[in-house]
């Protein structure tokens, strides 16, 4: 595990007893945790364990029904202004990229900065081109999402989230929809981002990435966190039976 010199002791996300139901189905059964500024947390677990739902409650794409979530001092409630404030501070990257197909890659990135941060077109485009440069795909700026590869689309999506200058980045299985040979180009970008000091919550099955980058690994099962530890402890000395089984299954291949 690499020492993360970026973390501070101030929590930027605080979750207290967060519950969520989809009709009768109890997805999140009381999640209590907090994330420090600059922390890199990897969230894993079997499908249906509530891990995606959990990170989606943090920018209110899912509404939690009980408990409190405080992001950078703002409590998530039904107050639309609070939700919009938090969404400006929290970037999100999706499994299916969700780029806007009717806009060029560049316009995908400038939409938020121009409409929400109220930047001029020129300034937004300059920033977007700089981000694409950082993602190593500046030459794809004027193409449409459908004209570039999956790995490139996901990097455009990361640039789109970063263009809002967020304090926190959420990644919801960012490499699960990619062809194997494109996974590393996306992970490289995420690694670079982690080293820049961004607070990151990553739902992923990439255990190599988790071991290398994470400060903490949280293991979800049936809506509760059953184990959380630093990567070294998590992989080499798992405590829970369920975790042991998961690790042996994922590390087999």
């Amino acid at each position: 595990m690499t020492e993360n010199e970026n973390t501070t002791n101030d929590p930027i996300i605080i979750c207290e007893d967060v519950h969520k139901w989809f009709d009768d189905f109890h997805v999140l059964k009381g999640i209590t945790t907090s994330f420090k500024k600059g922390e890199r947390a990897v969230i894993c677990g079997p499908s249906g364990s509530g891990k995606s739902t959990f990170i989606r409650t943090i920018n209110r794409l899912e509404e939690h029904q009980r408990g409190t979530i405080i992001v950078d001092g703002i409590e998530l409630s039904n107050d639309l202004r609070n939700i919009n404030l938090i969404r400006q501070e929290v970037g999100m990257v999706f499994q299916q990229f969700n780029l806007f197909p009717h806009l060029s890659n560049l316009k995908n990135i400038t939409l938020g900065p121009m409409r929400v941060r109220k930047l001029s077109k020129r300034q937004a485009e300059e920033e977007a081109l700089a981000l694409l440069e950082r993602m190593d795909i500046a030459d794809q700026a004027y193409k449409y999402p459908s004209e570039v590869s999956g790995g490139q689309q996901q990097r455009v999506a990361i640039a789109r989230a970063l263009a809002m200058e967020p304090k926190i980045m959420l990644f919801d299985e960012p490499t699960s929809a990619l062809d194997p040979e494109m996974i590393s180009e996306v992970l490289d970008v995420m690694r670079e981002l982690a080293h820049s000091g961004m607070t990151m919550l990553v739902v992923t099955h990439e255990m190599g990435f988790a071991r290398e980058v994470a400060d903490r690994i949280m293991f979800f099962d049936e809506g509760v966190v059953i184990e959380e530890a630093a990567p070294a402890d998590f992989f080499d000395n798992p405590q829970h039976e369920r975790t042991k089984l998961f690790i042996s299954q994922t590390l087999q291949h």
Binding site: N59, L61, N84, R87, Q88, V90, G91, M92, F94, Q96, N98, L99, F100, P101, H102, L111, G112, R115, V116, A157, R160, A161, M164
Partner: peptide
């Protein structure tokens, strides 16, 4: 649905989501 979610995640208001992302598609 992912299109609305992505637009919301960027911080657009509900009206902007509709006018800039959903209706054009």
């Amino acid at each position: 649905k992912g299109q609305r979610e992505a637009a919301r995640a960027v911080g657009l208001t509900e009206t902007q989501v509709l006018l800039l992302v959903v209706i054009p598609q």
